[in-house]
Amino acid sequence: MTLLRGNGAAGARATDASGASDGSVIERSWEIPDAFAVIFDRYADDIHRYIARRLGSDTADDLMAETFEIAFKRRRRYDLAHPHARPWLYGIATNLIRRHRRDEARRLRALARVASLSTGTEHDGPEDGVAERLSADAPLAGALAGLPTRYRDVLLVIAWGELDYEEAARALRVPVGTVRSRLHRARTRLRTALAGPDRTAPTAPEKETDHG
């Protein structure tokens, strides 16, 4: 369903017209700070969209800016063995979102109420279209609100951030096995809450071989 389906655009900008990888751009920014603007240009929209889906566009404006401010300050600590910076940036953004976990839960419950009262109608305004995506399945928003933060983070960084399991593990700084376990538990809890078929299977490719 739309809520847990990726936008298809993420992950395609790890190089620019010059062919420079994210890692090489970040390394260059160590001596030429302005070079870091390339990373912002590549991923700002994706990070903003992810945060807005979870917390709303007003909060997303501030947290997206804070994500890149933190990334810039930490750029010398970036592991250059990783050519793609997306998991690193999503990890920073997710850590910032955790500070607002109560706001996120309240937002999801409010969207569930709006969706349940307005199924089949058009939505305009502060929900930024999220209520439209939830209107066909209002209980899902409430079920997401009831997930522990650690489970919701894994589920949504994969579903909305379009990270695969290895990337999610890197973003959240947990083992791949923990990603698999938390995702399984999140899906199980959602199935129980919805008392219906599993509609939350991630579309991200499963690259890891770790079964821990």
Rank of each mutant, 00 (worst) to 15 (best):
M1A: 13
M1R: 14
T2V: 12
G11V: 05
A12P: 03
A12C: 11
R13F: 13
R13M: 12
D16E: 02
A17N: 07
S18E: 10
S18M: 08
A20N: 09
S21V: 01
D22W: 01
S24L: 06
V25K: 03
V25L: 09
R28T: 11
W30K: 15
E31T: 10
P33H: 05
D34R: 15
D34P: 06
F36I: 12
D41P: 04
R42C: 08
Y43T: 09
D45E: 14
D46Q: 15
D46Y: 09
I47Q: 04
H48C: 10
Y50A: 01
I51Y: 04
A52K: 01
A52N: 01
R53Q: 11
L55H: 04
G56L: 04
S57Y: 02
D58Y: 13
A60F: 05
D61L: 13
L63S: 05
A65E: 02
E66S: 13
T67W: 00
F68H: 03
F68P: 01
F68E: 02
F72M: 12
K73I: 09
R74K: 15
R75L: 03
Y78F: 10
P83N: 08
P83Q: 06
P83I: 08
L89K: 05
L89F: 05
Y90G: 04
A93R: 00
H100N: 14
R101M: 05
D103F: 11
E104R: 12
A105E: 14
R107D: 01
A110D: 03
L111Q: 06
L111K: 00
A112V: 00
A112T: 01
R113V: 11
S116K: 00
L117E: 14
L117P: 01
S118H: 12
G120M: 01
T121D: 06
T121L: 09
E122T: 10
H123E: 04
G125T: 07
P126M: 09
D128G: 14
V130F: 15
R133M: 14
L134R: 01
S135A: 14
D137M: 15
P139E: 06
P139A: 11
G142H: 03
L144Q: 03
L144M: 13
P148Q: 06
T149L: 11
R150I: 07
R152V: 02
R152T: 01
R152F: 04
R152A: 06
L156N: 14
L156K: 08
I158R: 14
A159G: 12
W160I: 11
W160P: 03
W160S: 12
G161W: 01
E162C: 02
E166T: 12
E166S: 13
E166M: 09
E167V: 06
E167W: 02
R170M: 11
A171G: 08
A171W: 03
L172C: 13
R173G: 06
L183C: 08
R185P: 00
R185C: 05
R185K: 11
A186N: 02
T188P: 10
R189M: 14
L190V: 00
L190I: 04
L190E: 00
T192L: 10
A193M: 09
A193C: 08
P197K: 05
P197G: 05
P197Q: 07
D198Y: 00
T200Y: 07
T200K: 00
K207A: 13
K207P: 10
E208C: 15
E208Y: 14
E208M: 15
T209W: 13
H211P: 08
G212E: 11
